[in-house]
Design a protein around this nucleic acid. Structure first.
Lengths: 135, 135
DNA sequence: ATGGATGCAAACAGTTTGCAACGAC
DNA sequence: GTCGTTGCAAACTGTTTGCATCCAT
């Protein structure tokens, strides 16, 4: 239970890196981007900042099962599509998820609080690449 | 692309450990259980066996985002409930998932092939523990 | 007898931790 | 001035890899 209070240049820079990115970033990618503004920042500080920002509800973690955790500027509940060939990640919000949660609560003894849905398949680019290879 | 062909004592023992377990096992748990039958087996061999069994469709990996991969004797498509307090994992099959896949295919450019749903909440035991603490 | 699988150990990736020095409050 | 945060490095967990030996075919 960290009782984090201080707003530092490092935390600000990490938050901005995530908010300015056009895609979901790994801690490593954040580290390299933030280093251009704060060349002295340490890896540990990036992780510390990410934990702080997550607890503060300013960013969200995305865990895909494979590879490192991704950091997402979008903080509302949503789901993801992941390309099994190139790994690109897109947002997608499963509709009426609350209905499914109610159903699971009814059918099981679990007090279900949330759900994460991960779709896997081929992104548009990789569909094209595969089509070309097959010709 | 490994072209695995040989059925060894080690692979048989790893498969049986998974099939006899009443819960999903980590590689470490499998290692310790198999060691009672084959005391000489190496960690690397457990991982090798698990990769073989997964490719052969005899076991399934369960990735919960946190912690090590779990191995599941159930090989049909299904989903999981995970307790956020004690980590216990239960199976649950989301109904009509194919309908949702079709919808996602329609609404996105992705060629969606599969989905994994992870529900989080409190298992019955942890609901009880929490109720006691609050009294 | 062949070469895929094993046992062992070292390497690896991602993340966390310990601690003295620093800086936000 | 306090004490939470930083930078640095070492530790840690889970998994993969390299290689000589072994054994399933």
């Amino acid at each position: 239970m960290a009782r984090s209070t201080r707003w530092t240049r490092q935390r600000e820079a990490v938050l901005e890196a995530i908010q300015q990115a056009k895609k979901h970033l790994t801690a490593q990618e954040i580290y390299h981007r933030v280093r251009q503004r704060l060349p002295g920042i340490a890896y540990g500080t990036v992780y510390n900042s990410l934990a702080y920002l997550r607890e503060a509800g300013l960013v969200r973690e995305v865990k895909l099962g494979d590879g490192p955790v991704l950091y997402d500027k979008r903080t509302d509940r949503h789901d993801h599509l992941c390309c099994r060939r190139c790994g690109v990640v897109l947002d997608y919000k499963v509709p009426h998820l609350e209905q499914l949660l109610k159903r699971v609560r009814r059918e099981t003894d679990f007090q279900v609080e949330s759900a994460h849905v991960l779709f896997e398949g081929l992104c548009p680019d990789c569909q094209r690449s595969r089509d070309e290879e097959e010709q």
